[in-house]
Amino acid sequence: MLSDMTFGQYYPSESPVHRMDPRAKLLLLIVYIVAVFLAKNFYGLAVCLIFLLLAIAFSRVPVRSVLKSVKGIVILILFTFVLNVLFYTPKEGDVVLFWRVTVQGLVSASFFALRIIFLVMGSSVLTLTTTPVSLTDGLESLLAPLALIRFPVHDLALIMSIALRMIPTLAEETDRIIRAQKARGADFESGNLVSRAKALVPVLVPLLVSAFRRANELGDAMDARCYAGSSKRTKYKKLKFSYRDLLALLVTGALLAGVILCNVYAYLLPVLY
C-alpha cells in the first residue's frame, strides 16, 4: 500500500533532458515559470506551449505521465476557472450569455486555467526527469553563494537528502503500524472526518517515537563515519554544466523573449477575443 509510494514521480530514461545538469533544469524551470506569468495573451501562452512540448519531446516522457500531474489539481483548476468567470468585470461590448457569465469572461478564465496547467506540467517535467537526489544536489549548488551570509546550505541539503532516504522507510513503517493497529481492532475507514482523524493518533504516536529512535541511531552511525559538519567536507560528485545545458538555457532565453515580444506587439496580432 504505502510502501509502493515513491517520492516524486521520477521516470527513468536516458534522454537528453534526463542527462542535463539539475542546476540548468532548475534555472530553466524558473525562467519558464516567469515566462508563463509574463504572458498577457494567448500568443504568449502558445510560445510557452511550444517550449513545453519541445521539453516533453526531448525528455521522452510519455505525455500521459505529464498530464497525470494536472489530474491532481483538477479541483483547483476548476475552482479558479469558476471564480474567474464569476468575478470577471464586464467591459462594454461583452456578450452576456446568462446571469453574469460572458463570452469574454469564459475566455479570460480559460487563460488563467491554462496558465496553471502549463505551470504544473512544466514543473512535472522537471520532477519526472530528475531524481530527488540530483535535485537536492542542484539546489545545494545553486544556493551555495548563500553560505557567504552564513546560510546553512550544506546542512539543509543533508537534511533534505536524509529526509528523502527515510521516506520509503517511514512509509513502510506506517504501513506496518496501521496493520498492527487494525489487527488490534482499530477502525480507520468509518465515521466522519473528525473521528477518522482521531483514529490516526494511535498510528502517529508510535511512528513519531520510532522516528526519534531512528534519528538517534542514524546520528550515531554518522558520528561513527566521521561526520563533523560541513567544514572540511569534500564532494565526490561534481555537477557538470555542459554545452547542452547552455543551449537549453539559450532556448529558454528565446522563450522569454518570445513571450515579451508577444506582449509588446500584441496590437499587431489579430485579436482573438
Binding site: 543533508l158 537528502s161 531512528r214 541511531e217 542514524l218 550515531d220 552511525a221 566521521c226 561526520y227 569534500t234
Partner: peptide, 27 residues
C-alpha cells in the same frame, strides 16, 4: 562500526552516494 538496524545507517538514497559519505567527511 556497523550497527544493528539495517534501515538506520544509510544517509543517502543511492548506494554510491552513501558509500562516499565517510570519505567526504574526512575531506
Amino acid at each position: 562500526m556497523v550497527f544493528q538496524n539495517p534501515d538506520n545507517q544509510q544517509i543517502a538514497s543511492i548506494v554510491e552516494d552513501d558509500v562516499v559519505f565517510g570519505p567526504e567527511n574526512v575531506g
